[in-house]
Design a protein around this nucleic acid. Structure first.
Length: 124
DNA sequence: CTTCTGACGAAAT
DNA sequence: CATTTCGCCAGAA
């Protein structure tokens, strides 16, 4: 069965402006999905997509270096996300609080399980 | 089938 | 902190 990125986009679409999540955090909420798959899904997005791909960064809070890295930093700054001298976002100030009630209802996820997973972040 | 390459990550050094 | 190492897994070659 081929890899279906839709569930990943559906969850990333749920992240509010000004908040940031890591590839691993998104993956942990989707059974069978790994951080690499999330990164791959983001890279496959078409330019102009409404999905907030810029709100996904590495677990250390740093931006994955590539051609569009500066665009991502710019977009985040526009939303009020601040960066430390190290170049990493300040997790304590902008970490995504978790999926909305709407997402949980729409996907049928177990609310209790979601809380358990959220409790494991941050992992640093 | 094997190898290599990623928008990754955690642990070890 | 910075680097390395190993595990991860879908695709491409």
């Amino acid at each position: 069965m081929p890899f279906d990125p839709k569930p990943i986009y559906q969850l990333v679409d749920d992240i509010p402006k000004g908040q940031v999540a890591s590839y691993g955090m998104i993956a942990s909420l989707l059974p069978g999905v790994t951080a690499r798959m999330v990164g791959r899904a983001m890279s496959q997005l078409e330019t102009g997509s409404k999905t907030p791909w810029h709100r996904i960064v590495q677990s250390a809070g740093t931006i994955a270096e590539r051609l569009s890295a500066d665009v991502q930093r710019e977009k985040l700054k526009e939303e009020g996300v601040d960066f430390r001298k190290s170049g990493a976002v300040d997790w304590s100030a902008c970490r995504w609080q978790g999926p909305s009630q709407r997402w949980i209802a729409r996907t049928g996820a177990d609310p209790e399980r979601v809380l358990e997973i959220l409790a494991t972040w941050p992992r640093r």
